[in-house]
Design a protein around this nucleic acid. Sequence first.
DNA 1: GTAGTCATGTAAGACGTTACATGATTCT
DNA 2: AGAATCATGTAACGTCTTACATGACTAC
Lengths: 180, 180
Amino acid sequence: MAIKYAILGLLSWQPFTGYDLKKVFMDSTVFYWSGNNNQIYRTLVQLHNEGLVTNEIHYQKSLPAKKVYSITGEGTKALQAWVSANPEPPELRNKFLIQLAWADQLSNEEINTLLERYEEELKLRLLMHKEKERRGRAAPRRTPREEYLWNMISENISAKFESELNWVGQLKHDLSNWKD
Amino acid sequence: MAIKYAILGLLSWQPFTGYDLKKVFMDSTVFYWSGNNNQIYRTLVQLHNEGLVTNEIHYQKSLPAKKVYSITGEGTKALQAWVSANPEPPELRNKFLIQLAWADQLSNEEINTLLERYEEELKLRLLMHKEKERRGRAAPRRTPREEYLWNMISENISAKFESELNWVGQLKHDLSNWKD
DNA sequence: GTAGTCATGTAAGACGTTACATGATTCT
DNA sequence: AGAATCATGTAACGTCTTACATGACTAC
């Protein structure tokens, strides 16, 4: 259900077509959703059925027609209610931790290789995130406070990567001097 | 597919019944899986079809019969292959960040309440995790290195909560002196 | 002429959660 | 009498991803 409100939120900022939303999801780290057609178009239809959005068809010469979606008053209310709702803690499930849990069958070098690949992957993702930020994110800047919130959201993501990298560093260090 | 290898890993430690696995999933933080019957029993059947596990039915007087699952040689190989496979970075998707992204419609006090509830929830989860650890986790300790790995996994989870708490603290602090 | 962008959508399937169903036994 | 534990499983539904389908236009 989070994608529903991610979309509703984006529409509360400005009207979007499904195609535009797809691009936003594909190249944002916070709103990342695998750039997934199916869910986006279906959710838009659902939101429309619930009266939370309206759409206008814009015909174009020499390009396919687009459905531009806008939020309704109802939609704004629904979004506000959801935003104030009880916050849930983040998902902890991490495939890599399960891999590590059964890694004792590997040699020290093999574990080290594994850790190094994980580290590389994390560094890459962090870099991509920072690069996206550097190039300027598409974000609402309706008030200084909103801009601050979005900065903190971006910070949250960087911090997660950095704390994970730290942790891997520790592991690598300990295992490199391992004697038993 | 991670649950498949979580189960296979547990079976590589010792034989389990579906019922036992359910309990492990329910009260572990790393292996948390909502204590979900459906997936566990189905996955066991699947593993069995693939020849990665075998089961033995233990009849009991005055208690329902149980199917005790054990890993096979094939299963051990499959687990080892998976453990050495390309690690993926953790999922970043966090519902709360999406809530915050559209929180600028709320007043400072409302945002503060939201942050406080999130903080409480995080503290609670961290406490639960630490309490579980304190009471002693059910974990394989076949070698000192394995024990170390499991300690680091637990550390990873605590670190995530702590870094998140830190971040909320910063937000709360900044917003409490907010002027614009 | 091949690939990419614009723009919509559907099909199929993997993964996850909640709730239901059964039935004996044991604890309070 | 009522709830919890032991032990298996299924049904229904929600979420998420990958891949397919169409078709005109544009840039190299």
